[in-house]
Design a protein around this nucleic acid. Structure first.
Length: 293
DNA sequence: AAAGCGGCCTCCGTTTAAAG
DNA sequence: CTTTAAACGGAGGCCGCTTT
């Protein structure tokens, strides 16, 4: 989508760390992930920067949804972006130092996106997939690129960062408060970070600068959904800082039928619910035709 | 072909959080 | 505190598949 954003730019600067393997251009700029990158454009022009992504809060569960009533993954996944300035790249004096103050980083243009991967139930014989397809492991279960199921992911899959006090100093955090999954099962997320206003030396595509894989979570059918826990401290902290997300003080789990809460009188017509379902032949395209993604 | 069964989506009432 | 809006859990009933 952002491919060739800076196409045509030619630089005459000396060879830098980002000049290797230009041959395969099919990879959407993934070949620089995790590497020190010399930038010629953007806020870090002239510097070599290595970006690192770390999941600091993982989703635990979600409720599958179809077309309406979206239910976000909970707790909201949060990843932290760390940036390291690298000097004397490739020499024996190579030295890395973290950006001293993240408040000084130009936030505009920084984005993090997510991909969804199913976690297989039982480990298929590990021999099967020694192809370079495997991108990650979840307790010895190989996760293959071709199993990517991002199309089942709905909501805000691209988010801008928030600069928030975290562990005593400002940090760049990406909060995914509006993610839902359309199929049930176990999954992991892959986070990828890029900056639309930066361009590496001698590089045509927009570069993915960092990625990381998150912890596994489970998406339940409506019926077996166990309910949501109270918000984590991190979630509440983010809300306090104005990040838009759902918070709940207590665990949410409605009392079972017949269960009473001291002065609770059971509903008179429990069991015989009248519904005014729009009786039509439904064909379920009739109403709710709006779709996203 | 008809009846039975089960999975699943949508819709609803209640509860909680936010706003006034 | 009271009111409004959103979040949330529950389950009815639709739909497609299986069995008789």
């Amino acid at each position: 989508m952002f491919t060739h954003f800076y196409a045509g730019y030619e630089s005459s600067q000396p060879a830098g760390p980002a000049t290797f393997s230009q041959n395969d251009s099919q990879a959407h700029g993934t070949d620089l992930i995790g590497r020190p990158i010399l930038f010629v454009h953007g806020q870090f022009a002239g510097s070599t920067i290595r970006a690192e992504l770390r999941e600091i809060q993982q989703a635990e569960l979600g409720r599958k949804y179809a077309r309406v009533d979206r239910r976000p993954l909970d707790p909201p996944p949060v990843v932290q972006l760390r940036l390291f300035k690298v000097r004397d790249v490739g020499t024996e004096h190579e030295l890395e130092s973290e950006i001293p103050n993240y408040e000084d980083v130009q936030i505009l243009g920084l984005l993090c996106t997510v991909d969804l991967f199913p976690v297989p139930f039982v480990s298929k014989s590990p021999s099967k997939s020694e192809a370079s397809e495997t991108v990650h492991y979840v307790n010895n279960h190989p996760i293959e690129e071709s199993s990517k199921a991002t199309s089942a992911l709905v909501g805000a899959t691209f988010v801008q960062p928030s600069v928030i006090d975290y562990e005593g100093k400002k940090a760049i955090l990406f909060v995914f408060a509006d993610l839902a999954v359309k199929i049930e099962g176990s999954f992991i997320l892959r986070y990828r970070f890029f900056d639309i206003f930066s361009r590496p030396y001698n590089y045509q595509d927009l570069a993915i600068q960092a990625e990381c894989y998150g912890g596994a979570f489970h998406v339940y059918s409506t019926k077996e959904f166990p309910g949501l826990q109270a918000s984590t401290e991190l979630t509440k902290h983010l809300a306090r800082w104005g990040v838009r997300l759902n918070t709940r003080e207590t665990e949410r789990r409605r009392r079972k039928k017949g269960e009473t809460r001291e002065h609770f009188s059971p509903s008179p017509n429990s069991g015989t619910r009248k519904r005014k379902r729009s009786s039509g032949p439904s064909t379920d395209g009739g109403f709710q035709s709006d779709e996203e993604e």
